[in-house]
Design a protein around this nucleic acid. Structure first.
Lengths: 242, 242
DNA sequence: AGGCTTTAAATGTCAGACTTTTAAATGTCA
DNA sequence: TGACATTTAAAAGTCTGACATTTAAAGCCT
């Protein structure tokens, strides 16, 4: 672990990078304890606050965790799927909101990715995944449900569909695409008729998954995408006229 | 922007969260300048180093950027697709390496997602994307290419395929899946025959994309996935026997 | 042996000073 | 008047040294 004294970059950036490289290269392994802040400041010939800033940068990325007290310190963190999932959702949400990504673009991406999961989910889904899908469909039919709650249930339904594929990497990758859409979806107001159509498509998809028919699930998702985009188009058109 | 004095969490974590919330909620908008470190430390009633640690946490997530000098300070950063892309690749790479994700799992996820892009790419790809794919195929046929270079070219080929879909959200989401596979792919040694088979499949896929035949591209990708997984299985089996 | 107390190591926080960078204000000269 | 050089001040970056808090382990007592 070395830094380049001739570099013009901030010291805390350089130190963070050096430690990060050490982790990626395997020089530091999971759960290994890093040298104490005092030792690091000595090693890199910088002050402790500078080292601390570097460590905070890494902590923000869940690359390390810190523990206080005797035999405490900074430890290389095993990046869990949950951590990665959370980061993915935050990043995707900000990306969509800050770059004025159109509803169509986000929607297209989301459904394209979901269709990739459907065939796997049709073969592998557990009874539990299917039960979750059915339960969310039931909830979506309840009267008095707010639009926000309807969207949340929609996300839960699709989450179960994706998780049914039994591939944690896929689930993680899809997290952003599905959850980041929620703020966009929340801009839509659903009439009772809209909800009935969507719930009907959800039922069709769930039936296909239950029957192990991936192809049918894919076409169901395609129809759902068309329906969703139509809905959004109408809502936005009506809003623009007003 | 307020913090809870009764909370037991580290102050720098609380402050970072408060600012992050302000950004997500839109209270702070893109390119807006945050108060100076001195003002923030005054506002939150903490010392400047503590404020700085909070800011470094946010900078590590590309939520803010800092500028030195007069009229400098911390500014809300527009999270670009490039930033998000880079974060995505790092996270995915670490996730795969730290959690001992099997080659099969990662490979399945990657190709499932790529197949989702193929139909869109067949319709929308520009001449430029197609040219890149052809160029990478040519490179892959060059004798004397190292395995690492071959893998890098493979990634570039698939990157062009994905980008051809013309959906930046999709490209961003796929970045992790495709690039994070590279370290795993690098563990494989490719015989001349292996390379010929892969390059042949690449050609088939490029032809399908050029012809606008998404279905053929999907089956091409399916065959490529099968081929890749076979290859990996053999390599790992041979290695285990040794 | 078991539980309590002490201790020391480590992170968390603070205060204040100094350095470096940078843009804007100011001044100077043609 | 305008272009260029100089000064100035604001802000982040860095350093030093100190104190507070947490926590595990060592030591002690019963």
């Amino acid at each position: 672990m070395q830094i380049d004294p001739s570099s013009s970059a901030d010291l805390s950036v350089q130190i963070a990078q050096a430690i990060k490289d050490a982790i990626i290269s395997g020089e530091l392994i999971v759960d290994e304890r890093l040298p104490s802040e005092a030792e690091l400041s000595d090693h890199f010939q910088v002050s402790r606050p500078t080292v601390r800033e570097a460590l905070k940068r890494l902590a923000a990325q869940s690359l390390i965790r810190t523990q206080r007290g005797a035999s405490g310190g900074a430890f290389v963190n095993r990046l869990s799927f949950e951590d990665a999932y959370a980061q993915q959702v935050t990043t995707s949400t900000l990306l969509l909101s800050m770059n004025a990504v159109s509803f169509d673009t986000a929607c297209e991406a989301r459904y394209a990715l979901e269709r990739a999961c459907a065939p796997l989910s049709a073969v592998r889904r557990s009874a539990d995944h299917l039960a979750t899908m059915r339960a969310e469909i039931f909830r979506q039919g309840q009267p008095g449900l707010t639009d926000v709650a309807f969207c949340a249930s929609d996300v839960a339904f699709h989450r179960a569909l994706v998780d049914g594929a039994g591939n944690p990497v896929l689930s993680y990758q899809l997290a952003g695409a599905v959850e980041a859409m929620q703020p966009l979806m929340n801009m839509i107001t659903f009439t009772a008729r809209d909800r009935a159509v969507i719930t009907g498509l959800h039922t069709r998809i769930a039936d296909s998954i239950e029957a192990g028919d991936g192809g049918a699930a894919v076409t169901g998702l395609q129809d759902l995408e068309d329906e969703t985009r139509n809905l959004a188009r109408n809502v936005f058109a009506a809003r623009a006229k007003r």
